[in-house]
């Protein structure tokens, strides 16, 4: 009975690892999968294999994947809300997270093997723009969104092209700034 449950859980976590979009999440799902496999070995009275599976599957390989992911660049997108929504409530954040524009920007970076990470900031726009941690800054205005990117960033050119070619870029403006001037 327990075995069937563990096997089903293993199938669930294997599917989750395959279908998760974020690689970091997939690594953690694989670690849980290995841990369940180790437990299954224990149920089948093979503690030696259980130790090997637990150590290598969920320890060594997970750490190896994580150290490999350190090279996989995270693209940090800062999101500055409009004046009236400075307070950043949960409802506002989930509304923005579900919006089509942000989904398209995230999809754009995922297709190019970058991990987009959206950070909601309650600081002023100038403050965020001068912060070197953000690769891209999106600011919401009553008319739409303004996307700020570095002058020498390739991503800005391609993002602009994508929005222009696919249309529906109403209210989206692109502003480039030089890093030196902003500081």
């Amino acid at each position: 009975m327990v075995e069937v449950g563990v096997l089903l859980l293993m199938a669930v976590f294997a599917l989750l690892a395959i279908h998760s979009v974020l690689l970091r999440l997939a690594v953690i799902y694989l670690a849980i999968f290995s841990l369940l496999a180790a437990f299954l070995y224990l149920l089948h009275a093979a503690p030696e294999l259980a130790i090997a599976e637990g150590v290598i599957g969920s320890g060594l390989v997970t750490l190896l994947y994580l150290s490999a992911l350190k090279r996989y660049r995270v693209y940090t997108i800062g999101f500055v809300g409009g004046e009236e929504s400075r307070k950043l409530t949960d409802r506002y954040i989930s509304e923005v997270e579900d919006s089509a524009t942000l989904a398209r920007i995230k999809d754009f970076f995922q297709r190019r093997e970058f991990e987009p990470q959206v950070v909601f900031v309650s600081r002023s726009l100038e403050d965020v723009l001068s912060d070197p941690h953000y690769d891209l800054v999106i600011s919401e205005t009553p008319h739409g969104m303004i996307i700020y990117g570095r002058q020498d960033s390739y991503a800005m050119v391609e993002l602009e092209l994508m929005f222009r070619m696919q249309g529906a870029g109403s209210g989206i403006e692109f502003v480039r700034y030089a890093r030196e001037e902003a500081q």
Binding site: P47, E48, A50, I51, A52, V55, I56, G59, L60, L63, L64, L66, S67, K70
Partner: peptide, 24 residues
């Protein structure tokens, strides 16, 4: 007890990686 050279050695090797992840 269950375990042995290979399993213990893997545990020791995971320390090398943990060290790298924390302190590269």
């Amino acid at each position: 007890t269950p375990g042995g050279g290979f399993q213990g050695g893997s545990i020791l090797a995971s320390l090398f990686i943990a060290r790298y992840v924390v302190f590269p």
